[in-house]
Amino acid sequence: MPEITLIEYDGQTHIIEAESGKSLMQNALDNMVPGIDADCGGGCACGTCHCFIEKNWGEVTGASEPVEDALLGMRPDRKDNSRLSCQIEVTDEMNGMIVRLPEYQM
């Protein structure tokens, strides 16, 4: 089970034992990590599970697809390392990954 660190905007840190094969969004919800709203339930349709993948982990998570990219484009706080966590399937290679959560979801 890969260990993933999620850091809220105010610095609160949550280290979770993630389950491979499930999305990062679902893992965050299952572990009651605040800051991921996931309004649409993981359908890449709302943009409220936005997160930032810490540098050096972008290769493991891969890049965003066009639909995800379009939703991210609507975020005022988008950065180069922005992703929707529902579109990242957790794998064992993500052990040690650090993910930062945004100030707000919308």
Binding site: D39, A45, G47, L71, G73, M74
Partner: peptide, 8 residues
């Protein structure tokens, strides 16, 4: 109620 996608 809020719709989905880029027009949400």
């Amino acid at each position: 109620s809020f719709g989905f996608g880029v027009h949400r």
